[in-house]
Computed example of a mutant assay.
Amino acid sequence: MRHAEMFAALALAASLAAGPAHAQQVIKIGVVGPLTGAFAAGGQSQITGAEMRAKEINAQGGPYKIELFSEDDASNCDQSVNATVKLVTRENVVAVLGALNSPCALAMVPITKRYKTPQFTPGVGAAITKQGSEWVFRIAVGAEGQTKALADFTVNKLGEKKIAVLYSDDEYGASMANGFKTALAALGVQPVAFESFPRADQDFTGQLSKAKQAGATALYAVGAYTASALIAKQAKALGMNLKLLGDTGNATPKYIELGGEAVEGAVVMEPFTPVDPDPKVQEFVKRYKDQYGRDPDGWVAEMYDTVGIIHAAVTKAGKADRQVVRDYAASLKPGTAYTGILGQWTFDATGEAQFPLYKVEIKDGKKVIVGR
């Protein structure tokens, strides 16, 4: 199926269960993410998470139905910007969900600010919420929160002190690597190696050799999950026995699939994990798996809840309006939180959300919770 046809099919599926069109008003939501290219698995999580919640809302038959408009940016930031302009000016969406990649989410911020359109992004790059825009909300734990939690677990729980850091030289990689370095410093630890690589690189033997010479016993690789999996394989080929560390970008099932035995024993962070035995989580996992044939990940849960937040905003105000959605999201504070699959949603003054993060270890190709 061509991508344009797939987008149309998803939008249609999200509205089919709505009942008679004359009985409902439409809430138009745009989704910008990579449905093709190296990050396509993340883009699929975006759209399926949003679609699943939209179908549930539409099936309820209330006064509002959700209509999704998806645009594939293929992880190209120019395409992200163009997609955003199209969704805002042509489709007249009340909010844009995206982009997945931090550099692309950052590139979208001036556009959503100019058109006064709420932007909900899972991008974790630190700069995204520091542009002076009241229209951007991060629907993930940002670089500072993630790296503090990861550093604390690495040093105080795993007992690792000789840690190497390899990171992609973009907004995402630099934010996470520098945040991790700062968090380690607060614990009295300095990385034994701190090496960057071009975003599209596929040969990491030079950086890994430096880490090996420095005596690293643990490795935090941050970049695309495809790169992190490849780094794990190349480290293994070099005979390095490392405790692999990862942030939420490596929590996707694709990281395990691509890394295979090389990522066995890796510890990754995620805001949602399908192995949580909580009945509410397991019921959500079953519903998602029945529809899409795989386990949901953090991106699925984040997008699912965000569609719910937008619907709640419009329902409360009685009109589908960008300002209404923005003001409702900004009003979510302790005591007035939105309750979703990820728990209690609140945003601070800069649009940052906070969730407790699971620490999961990959054992026999499966995730096992080792902390929270």
Results as ranks from 00 to 15, higher is better:
residue 3 H to V: 11
residue 6 M to A: 11
residue 13 A to S: 13
residue 13 A to P: 02
residue 18 A to K: 03
residue 33 G to T: 09
residue 37 G to H: 07
residue 43 G to C: 10
residue 43 G to M: 03
residue 49 G to K: 01
residue 56 E to K: 08
residue 59 A to G: 12
residue 65 K to R: 13
residue 66 I to C: 04
residue 72 D to N: 14
residue 79 Q to D: 15
residue 85 V to C: 06
residue 86 K to I: 06
residue 90 R to H: 12
residue 91 E to L: 03
residue 91 E to K: 08
residue 100 L to H: 04
residue 109 V to Y: 01
residue 111 I to T: 10
residue 114 R to Y: 15
residue 123 G to A: 11
residue 126 A to K: 03
residue 128 I to D: 05
residue 130 K to M: 10
residue 134 E to Q: 14
residue 136 V to L: 06
residue 137 F to Y: 11
residue 143 A to K: 02
residue 145 G to W: 01
residue 150 L to K: 00
residue 155 V to A: 10
residue 174 A to W: 01
residue 191 P to F: 07
residue 197 F to V: 00
residue 209 S to W: 08
residue 210 K to R: 14
residue 211 A to M: 09
residue 213 Q to V: 12
residue 215 G to M: 13
residue 227 A to N: 14
residue 229 A to K: 00
residue 232 A to N: 06
residue 236 K to Y: 15
residue 238 L to H: 08
residue 245 L to G: 02
residue 248 T to G: 06
residue 249 G to R: 00
residue 250 N to F: 04
residue 259 G to H: 00
residue 269 M to W: 00
residue 271 P to I: 05
residue 275 V to D: 06
residue 283 E to M: 09
residue 286 K to D: 15
residue 303 M to Y: 05
residue 309 I to P: 02
residue 309 I to S: 01
residue 310 I to G: 03
residue 317 A to N: 07
residue 320 A to N: 09
residue 327 D to N: 14
residue 329 A to R: 00
residue 329 A to T: 04
residue 343 G to T: 10
residue 345 W to A: 03
residue 347 F to Y: 10
residue 348 D to H: 11
residue 357 L to R: 01
residue 363 K to F: 12
residue 369 I to E: 06
